[in-house]
Every structure is written in C-alpha cells, then in structure tokens.
C-alpha cells in the first residue's frame, strides 16, 4: 500500500491564511491503514487546525469528511457537495489523491495534508516499512522476494557492498542490509546459485527516469 505521514499542523495552517471555509478531506484506504489520513486522523487534523487558526485570529470554518478513496472518480464524486462548498481543501490522501482531486475540482485549491513517503507494509502495530520502489521492472524472483531497489540504500543490483556489517547497512545500524537478507533468504530457499550470474546494469527508463508512466489495457480502455 501507499504509506504517508502527517504533516506539521502549522505547515498546513500557514497555507490557509485568507480562507474562510476549509474542508479537511480524509481517504479511507491506504492512508487510513497507515494511520495518516483516515477518518480518525481527519478529525484530529480538523480539530488541531480549528485551534491553530483561532490562535492566529482566523475564525475560519473548518469542516471534515472522509472519502472511501480520493483516487477513483466515482468515489471522489461522493464528496463533491462538501468540496464545492469549501474555498480550499486540505487533502489527507496520498499524492495521487491530491492530484485527482485537483483535476476534478479545478480551479479549487487542494493542498496536501500528509507527505506520501513510500510503498510498503505494516510490519507490526505502529511500524510501516518500505518494500517496493515501483521501478517498473520487477526482478525480485532473483532475490527471493526482497527488493534491492527499495531496500538497499544504493539500490545495488549485485551486492552486498563493503558497507555491509553484521547484516546491517553502513547508513544506519538499525537498517538491515538488503543484500544480507537476500543471501539468507536464497540460502533458505536453496537458490543461492541465483547470484552466480552477474546482473547487468538496470534499465531505469521503466522507472521515474523515463518520465511519467502509464498503463493501458486496450480491451478495457474507453
């Protein structure tokens, strides 16, 4: 899922100067799962913003609503009335949600209330970890399901580097060395021979380096 993190309330409040009717819009999918922008966080953000604005002498009305998803046109439509009534929207969805809302409600300002940080999963209660970098050319079959692009600090295709120490990365002793994990996983799978062949340099054109990407499925496309 997409993992996001709450922004500082003051950073959001700074962008609301001059607006009288504000809507805080949550998203009940990924950002709810990572506890950054679901219904509960939307209520917290709205309450904190009401207080922050009042302390600044701004008597703006701050309302709140949570969409099932802000990245689906049909589901955005369900909150259209509330969005149309607002002068500005603080979206607690990921960057995709903010982009879709901005496109749907142009020219209304839709500003982000969270920082979208990575694609990952909930490792345990209160802890989310990055697991995929959406590079567009998945090769984790070779590395036992562990992504060296997302989990190696250098995104090495042939590792580990000399900075691996007791299974930890040189950037931080709390960070696992992805290549140490890969080797241990392949040993457990009996597939260590996967690493005998050198992997050629990765073609990053399928990643962000190739510009904005799109996926088309012709038989579904309208």
């Amino acid at each position: 899922m997409i993992v996001a993190k709450a922004k500082d309330i003051n950073e959001i409040a700074d962008k609301l100067a001059g607006y009288g009717k504000i809507l805080v819009a949550g998203c009940a999918t990924c950002v709810a799962e990572c506890m950054a922008g679901g219904e509960k966080e939307t209520a917290i953000t709205a309450s904190a913003l009401r207080m922050a604005l009042k302390l600044r002498g701004n008597q703006a009305e701050v309302n709140e609503i949570t969409a099932e998803r802000q990245c689906e046109w049909e589901l955005i439509e369900e909150i259209a009335t509330q969005v149309n009534e607002a002068e500005i929207v603080v979206s607690l969805a990921c960057g995709v949600g903010v982009a879709c809302m901005s496109e749907r409600f142009e020219p209304k300002p839709i500003i982000p209330g969270v920082n979208t940080v990575f694609l990952g999963h909930r490792e345990k209660a209160g802890l989310w970890m990055e697991r995929c970098a959406a590079c567009g050319d998945c090769t984790v079959d070779r590395t036992g399901g562990i992504c060296p692009v997302a989990r190696c600090a250098k995104s090495l295709q042939n590792g580990p580097c000399g900075g691996s120490n007791d299974g930890k990365c040189e950037i931080d002793p709390d960070v696992d060395c992805a290549w140490h994990l890969i080797i241990e996983r392949l040993k457990a799978m009996g597939k260590l021979e996967n690493l005998k062949e050198n992997t050629p340099p990765k073609n990053w054109a399928t990643s962000r380096d190739g510009g904005p990407r799109k996926v088309v499925i012709e038989d579904v496309e309208e």
């Binding site: 500082d8 309330i9 003051n10 409040a13 917290i44 904190a48 207080m51 922050a52 302390l55």
Partner: peptide, 8 residues
C-alpha cells in the same frame, strides 16, 4: 506534540 505545533 500537536499542541506544541499549533502554539497552545
């Protein structure tokens, strides 16, 4: 922490 952010 939230209160510190907003200045309360």
């Amino acid at each position: 922490r939230i209160l510190d952010q907003i200045g309360l």
